[in-house]
Write a protein that binds this DNA or RNA. Sequence first.
RNA 1: GGCGAGUUGGCGGAGUGGUUACGCAGCGGAUUGCAAAUCCGUGUACAGGAGUUCGAUUCUCCUACUCGCCUCCA
Length: 485
Amino acid sequence: MTTIKLHNTKTRKREEFVPIDPENVRMYVCGPTVYDRAHLGNARPVIVFDVLYRLLRHVYGPDHVTYVRNFTDVDDKINARAAESGRSIAEITAETTQWFLDDMAAVGALEPNEMPRATAYIPQMVKMIEGLIASGHAYAAEGHVLFAVESYKEYGALSGRSIDDMIAGARVEVAPYKRNPMDFVLWKPSDADTPGWDSPWGRGRPGWHIECSAMSYELLGAHFDIHGGGNDLMFPHHENEIAQSCCAHPGSGFANYWLHNEMLQVEGKKMSKSLGNFFTVRDLLDQGVPGEVIRFVMLSTHYRKPMDWTEKKREEAEKTLDALLSPLSIAVAHRAVPSNAWGDVPKGIRETLIEDLNTSGALTCLRASAELVGKLAEGRGPGESDGATLQVACVEFLTGLEVLGLYELMLKRAARKRDNKDLLDDVHLRFVIARNLAMQTKDFSTVDQLKAGLKQAGVEVRMTKESVELVPGPEFNPAILEALK
RNA sequence: GGCGAGUUGGCGGAGUGGUUACGCAGCGGAUUGCAAAUCCGUGUACAGGAGUUCGAUUCUCCUACUCGCCUCCA
């Protein structure tokens, strides 16, 4: 059996991943609060954990992995958005949820098996809070219910903090009803204008952290394998989740492996509205940056390192992905399709991905796999180049694309290129005629003029003695093409 | 102040206790009407210091610098 190794934040070490039940590997990842479009940083954990999900499915079988990612649809940011826009909360959360699904699909993320909404689990949260009060881990005060951090010895273990240190460094005013400044809200009162649910503590709404504890318990049980999210969630969100869940279900252990991705930067700086380098996934897509490019750039940096989104990387990704199109068409022409079998993933990708999700290394191996397809198809591969060898290489290449989440996206990319190529039919014919003539007359002025125009329109001209091929590049602009006529 | 992560060649970015990926850019060549694309070849690196070791870029410690988090931001 293949052993995946993962860096566990809990132990700060790379550990062998041993599932609780190989028949049902369970993973929970914190999803978005649905009040606005997902920005590029939001896409990073989605893509990272999508690769992990695909990896687990290949290793343990597609039907033996349960992946849960929530939607937090009750939150004060949502309330604020509703108040300022005059729209209803339900309208905002429904719309934002669909945006998120659309945008993440565009970057090739599979939908998790379960996508629970927090508001559908309010009774479960109330029940969990009642249990925490009963066991002395929480207390009600002035309409709030607070978790008593001092009741949980391990509090701070995940993020490596002590309660005393945190109090010393606290920058925020402490609410008077808290027994300990670090106590956090499980439930808070709602006024008439704020969404609320009836509870033993009056009409109110849940605090931030309890929804993940309640939903992971309902859908994955008290003890499951992997819990993921961005490293900014380590404290306080995940720390609080652990405290709530472990105290509500003593002895369960909650999640065995905690995975955290590093943050995203843009051109070397933190993405922020004040710096003016803030953009959403949708912004990029609308600007013509396709999903596979976003995904490729994301995967080209290891998930535990800061990932810098730059224009240069975007350009390089376009070129690299274009270079995969020819092997892709060869594989498709050979009627190859991706396989679910772990053994059909190219060896190099298998070896790199199981080492704490080394996606950058895997992309290098993917290129090598593509190159092999090209060489075998031209009959100049290593060793015996028979049809069977080529067939295997094709399946492996496509399976490699699939496990990295690039297969479907690349098929679409290929289709777009074909559509663009159709637009070039007229000019292609003219070019061929002009060139044939020029070959006789040795006057290449018309040909060069046409070529310059095509280049301007973002079209690459590839000539051999016998043929002319026009390849639209990433900067292809059909409007400029029109001007050539 | 507390906690954590990082510092690899011109750029990006893996990895390893000894044989020094890979991509882009560069350079040389093949090819070409000229090009592009492609193919072949090629140079340059492990922040600084100390230690462990037969040997460290890889392990340990220290220093410097960068970055992130520290109550609702993935």
